[in-house]
Design a protein around this nucleic acid. Structure first.
Length: 680
RNA sequence: GCGCGAGUGGCGGAAUGGCAGACGCGCUGGCUUCAGGUGCCAGUCCUGGCAACAGGGUGGAGGUUCAACUCCUCUCUCGCGCACCA
């Protein structure tokens, strides 16, 4: 309702995307890969329908600008996809007079400086303008062409390989700078949705226009001399910079910037155009012909037209249609429920009808996170104070498949709510990570594909801890994992090993760890320290690997001399349980109880790492001779460069590798590395 | 075509420019077991060698460096995104 009040929600008739399999319209963002449906991947077709839209285009510039604040915090890939989707281009509007018509036709061009070379005009066949302009003598041919265009699938239409097609509309426009008569054609290489659906064609300097001109024998006029062959002869357009020619006002200029500036100045002066910015982004088609969705809160009155449902009657709820067939059939299911549809006009009290379309699920997902801040609230969608406290979301996790859908829509919603003064921030998600997907039988698992692994069955078989740990251990969170590569049973074994370690501890609760085995304690503190760092870096798969090492080391200590009664073993088991609690909370809780620790591991604090124990006492120093490792020497961690060098040069293996040669240079990175460069 | 991302054992994957292959799977041999499984021990990049050890090795070709999976140039392959946007 707020969007409607702001003029950001409106209804219009247009050619829209239609999914024949889902039996509903789709937003442009929901048409993917060669014109297929995002949901079911059926070929999307076009239909002329009246639908509801959100005016997201009004926010194009801000959606673009505000991405600067997201740089480095969102994956570049997503930012690039949004930038391309918004598709800002700088150029000019140019108005062309039409012979025998009052109203001029406006086109958008990024190259107003080539206006003198505009030798014909092309209009998208499915743009209303084409139908308005076509001369009676050409109408039949045009109608046939339009039909063919509508039938062509997106994939055919988008193919660059495709030969140009088109029809002459029998009309002429006037080039506003040359005054010359130029023919108006219609061709499907011009898109109805972009700009005004009409272009000025400059064949000499645009390959697409040139291909079209050559096919249909239209004139080619070079207006920039780039030093390359004349496009009229070569068939290769020259879009680059050069010296303007055949362009009265521009002749002699050599740079595009001043060319564009001068033409735009001239157009503005004559009232025939102006500098302009356009966007590829289209308004968001939000209405759907489905039952399951929020009804659009508008009442259609024969007297008052569109009337908003009063705020105290919101939200409009769906009728109870239990038992009815709700499968989408191409028309709004709500239309067939007269007792729901028929209502009275809030304005005049006369009979009126509710809007029967529902909103796309992406409308809901664009602001669910605000609702999550105050889920129990009855009187409003969300509590402004609660949202102020919790939002924006610090770290969001979601798949790239939402790059130009959910993630763009949510940014739009947030900006609108900001403008309404309901929130005080303009971006919903401060940081974003794209997690990988789980692949099964060659495809990302999805409900609609039905190739999901039955998690319930997996959990019954292996336990929820094992499944969660298995997924985490399978690889970095950003990468896809193939379910065929994972091994829940191996994780079960690991968790059992960890559990047994806790079970074997026989030292009393509270035993002083400092009296325990020093070597084991060093391992424990070093490993836990590393895990702590890895968690910050979100390297969870490596964390699990380190926990495995910890369990192995503790097991070995118990079995070989240190013994289960050593307090260091207790410390190791407690640390392991704490580390494990992040991935396998139930097993960790059981371990915690076995270790006799107080109520719940969920309330325990992260272990304190002793920096002295963590710091290695001795390290294995590698010695390279001419880049090859020739010796590994155990040295104190605090060894001096001089001592390290001396130890390296005294090593038997190093002496052998030097084979009597002198030492030309020694690079010492104590205590890790000594590199020796032999001389002659 | 343009733009990203990724190429490391049989597999998933580890490695602030500093010991390539951590950890796990799988596999091989052994112990335990009536048996299977579990558990435990040993081995597992390639070549030569009983071994010590030597040589080679991170898609390919060059380069920078004492030292390159890591940085640079070119190239190949795969994946993803965009694709007649005027």
């Amino acid at each position: 309702m707020k969007f409607y009040e702001q003029g950001l929600a409106y209804r219009k008739g247009s050619y829209v995307n239609w999914c024949p399999s889902c039996q509903t319209v789709l937003a442009n963002e929901q048409v993917v890969q060669g014109g297929t449906c995002e949901r079911c991947h059926a070929q999307v077709t076009k239909r002329q329908l009246t639908q509801w839209y959100f005016r997201i285009t009004a926010y194009a510039e801000r959606l673009l600008e505000d991405m600067e604040a997201l740089a480095g915090k969102w994956p570049d890939r997503v930012l690039t996809m949004q930038r391309n989707w918004i598709g800002r281009s700088v150029g000019a509007w140019v108005d062309f007079e039409i012979e025998g018509r009052e109203e001029p036709v406006r086109v958008f061009t990024t190259r107003p400086d080539t206006l003198y070379g505009a030798t014909f005009m092309v209009i998208a066949p499915d743009a209303d303008l084409a139908g308005e302009l076509v001369a009676e003598t050409c109408r039949d041919e045009f109608e046939a062409y339009l039909e063919k265009t509508k039938l062509a699938t997106e994939i055919e239409r988008q193919s660059t390989e495709r030969e140009k097609t088109g029809v002459f509309l029998g009309r002429y426009a006037i080039n506003p700078v040359t005054g010359g008569k130029i023919p108006i054609w219609s061709a499907d290489y011009v898109l109805a949705e972009y700009g005004t659906g009409a272009i000025m064609a400059v064949p000499a300097h645009d390959q697409r226009d040139l291909d079209f001109a050559r096919k249909f024998g239209l004139p080619v006029q070079m207006v920039i001399d780039t030093g390359e062959a004349d496009p009229a002869q070569s068939g290769i357009a020259t879009p680059g910079d050069g010296t303007y020619v055949n362009s009265e006002l521009l002749n002699g200029l050599t740079d595009k910037v001043s060319g564009v500036e001068r033409i735009c100045g001239k157009l503005a002066e004559d009232g025939r155009g102006e500098a302009a910015v356009t966007y590829r982004l289209r308004d968001w088609l939000l209405s759907r012909q489905r039952f399951w969705g929020c009804p659009i809160p508008i009442i259609h009155c024969p007297v008052d037209g569109e009337v908003p449902v009063p705020e105290d009657q919101l939200p409009v709820e769906l009728p109870d249609l239990r038992g009815a067939d709700l499968a989408p059939k191409g028309t709004a299911p709500l239309a067939s429920v007269p007792e729901w549809v028929n209502t009275t006009c809030p304005k005049c009290g006369g009979p009126a009808r509710r809007d029967v379309d529902t909103m796309d699920t992406f409308v809901d997902s664009s602001w669910y996170y605000f609702r999550y801040c105050s889920p129990g609230l009855d009187s409003a969608p969300f509590d402004i104070a609660e949202v102020a406290k919790w939002m924006p979301i610090d770290q969001y996790v979601g798949g790239v498949e939402h790059a130009i859908l959910h993630l763009l829509y949510s940014r739009f919603f947030t900006k609108v709510l900001f403008d309404l003064g309901m929130i005080d921030f303009t971006e919903p998600f401060t940081r974003l990570m794209n997690q990988g997907q789980v692949i099964n039988r060659g495809k990302a698992m999805s409900k609609s594909l039905g190739n999901g692994v039955d998690l319930g069955a997996q959990i019954d078989q292996f336990g929820v801890d094992a499944i969660r740990t298995t997924v985490v251990f399978a690889g970095p969170p950003e990468e896809d994992i193939d379910w065929a590569d994972v091994s829940p049973s191996a994780t079960v074994r690991f968790l059992q090993r960890a559990y047994r370690v806790a079970n074997d501890v026989s030292s009393p609760i509270g035993a002083d760890p400092t009296t325990g085995d020093l070597e084991l304690r060093r391992t424990v503190h070093r490993t836990m320290g590393e895990i702590t760092d890895l968690l910050e870096l979100r390297r969870f798969n490596v964390c699990v690997a380190r926990l495995m090492e910890l369990v192995n080391a503790t097991r070995k200590a118990i079995d070989t001399g240190v013994g289960s009664a050593d307090p260091a073993v207790r410390e190791a088991a407690e640390f392991t349980a704490l580390g494990l609690s992040l991935f396998a909370p139930y097993v960790a809780e059981e371990m915690w109880e076995l270790l006799g620790q107080p109520p719940s591991i969920a309330e325990a604090t992260w272990p304190t790492i002793d920096p002295e124990l963590r710091a290695a006492q001795t390290v294995t120093m590698a010695v390279q001779v001419q880049g090859k490792v020739r010796a590994k020497i155990e040295v104190p961690a605090d060894i001096s460069d001089a001592d390290a060098e001396a130890a390296a040069l005294a090593d038997e293996g190093v002496i052998r590798a030097l084979a009597g040669r002198s030492v030309a240079k020694v690079i010492v990175k104590a205590p890790r590395m000594v590199s020796i460069v032999p001389g002659a």
